[in-house]
Design a protein around this nucleic acid. Sequence first.
RNA 1: UGGGCGAUCGUUCAAUGGUAGGACAGUGCCCUUUGGAGGCACUUAUCUAGGUUCGAAUCCUAGUCGCCCAGCCA
Length: 567
Amino acid sequence: MNANPENIETRTPSNFLREIIAEDARTKKYGDAVIQTRFPPEPNGYLHIGHAKAIFLDFGLADEFGGKTNLRFDDTNPEKEETEYVESIQEDVRWLGFEWEKLCYASDYFGQLYEWALQLIKAGKAYVDDLTAEEIRQHRGTLTEPGKDSPYRNRSVEENLDLFVRMKNGEFPDGSRVLRAKIDMASPNLNMRDPVMYRILHATHHRTGDAWCIYPMYDYAHGQSDSIENVTHSMCTLEFADHQPLYRWFIEQLGIFPSQQIEFDRLNLTYTLLSKRRLLQLVQEGRVRGWDDPRMPTLSGIRRRGFTPEAIRAFVASVGATRTNGIIDIEMLEHFQRDDLNRRAARAMAVLRPLKVVIDNYPEGQEEMVDVANNPEDPAAGTRQVPFSREIYIEQDDFREVPPPKYYRLSPGKEVRLRNAYFITAQNVMKDAEGNVVEVHCTYDPASRGGNSPDGRKVKSTMHWVSAKHAISAEIRVYDKLFSNPNPSDFPEGGSFLDNLNPNSLEIVSDAKLEPSLADAKVEERFQFERVGYFCVDRDSSETRKIFNRTLALKDSWAKIEKKAAG
RNA sequence: UGGGCGAUCGUUCAAUGGUAGGACAGUGCCCUUUGGAGGCACUUAUCUAGGUUCGAAUCCUAGUCGCCCAGCCA
């Protein structure tokens, strides 16, 4: 990305990660080596907003210090990993605006890792254990009790070597043996109680195929992979803090490049679930339309929803990094997205729930074009022509036959402005058999063309509109939060996180009326529908029928007033 | 109960022994051809108890509370 360090300095406060790196750079802890980081996802699912923070930190911090960042797939478990995911991950990282130095795979290092395992066995630091998974668990002890040595712990180097080579050669079935590091079964840190380094898995790996039937565990692969890549600062989330002693142990035993692990807090958001397992469940059970459903917190979902990489970067930058675990208000994310879109999104007029307005004194058959700013925030965006005629649509919410207090919009006898067009005054209404208002008849002031009256008369309200004759019809998918509970994982005994699903997270408006210029909108193009919200064109659109996703509603102070009045 | 980590406005991030500040949210006012945006103002915080110090959010001690760890997952 084209990061501007000065800008980042002034825009975001420092954090402990930046300070550690700055200090290491200053003291030349790594000599003249450049700052090297890595973003190490396991290709077993789609990236989500939580990963955006890690990506921003890994890439952003390295960049700030003139360093490099590798994208490394931590693909040590063939049973869960797929090429589909390695592709989507690359796409998502690029979409966020980052480019990696090298594309790496832990599986690239399987050979080296194997050689190092041999080395550790020869040094008497690793042994083959024939205990079952269950027995290993029992020998591990508990949080308060030390573990017990495996009866196989003191095998000879020769026997261990022989057994391990045969494990590698496929002589033993899955689960029959493992290679373990020989450390300390009484360590208060469970990770140091002779952790498993290799397990036998006769599974086809998405890259190495059937070349291997033993696969390294995370703990044995991660630090060494960092070391191979000369990673200076290996940043990961807090739950790995207990693994750090082991991370260092392997590097020290092997005498290889001393990468250092630093942990920071995971990103948590209100109303949002970031557990891969549960996200997968939502997809598999059809609770959402897929990984890229616009309600999903996945990067692909957020992108389809209309969020921008700029806003996400600004958001994660503001959130910073600490070692405290908190939960960030989703409104913070929404704020950064509105802020970005407000500056950049072209405006358009669209009526989601149309109510027909007939301007009785506007000549029948007449039509005209009015000049409209594409973005009042950005004069450079220019203007466009929007057709106006005798019959228009306004939002149902913008008319009340009996206006409540503080209601500024259209009501009988009230004069309002049609944005960029004319002042109109409501005269009378037509109703259907049930008494619903189906048409409002108004008169307009021809002198107010453009939206101002020469006599300086003021109106309280300005409303958007679409010419009925020229409007195009479109489908609009109005999204709301996927969960109605701020903490979706909080459910009563016997319940499920699914109970927290918001039943109204998707509302489909099938016949919205849009200004005709929107007929040319391209997939993913973003707009602000004035007074309504931010929308983008969904890829489900066809040549003849547009489908828009609502990214976010505009802040609505009238809704607040109404709510307050309702008590 | 063992080990590790942490604790500052409602939320989040700063303050690195020297005026507790910003952002989000909230409230009020101003402005407005989007009840949007913008501007101004306001409210609210250093977990507790001791100690060190001229001076402590910061250092020390003890306590309290929270998170993480007992996969042949990462």
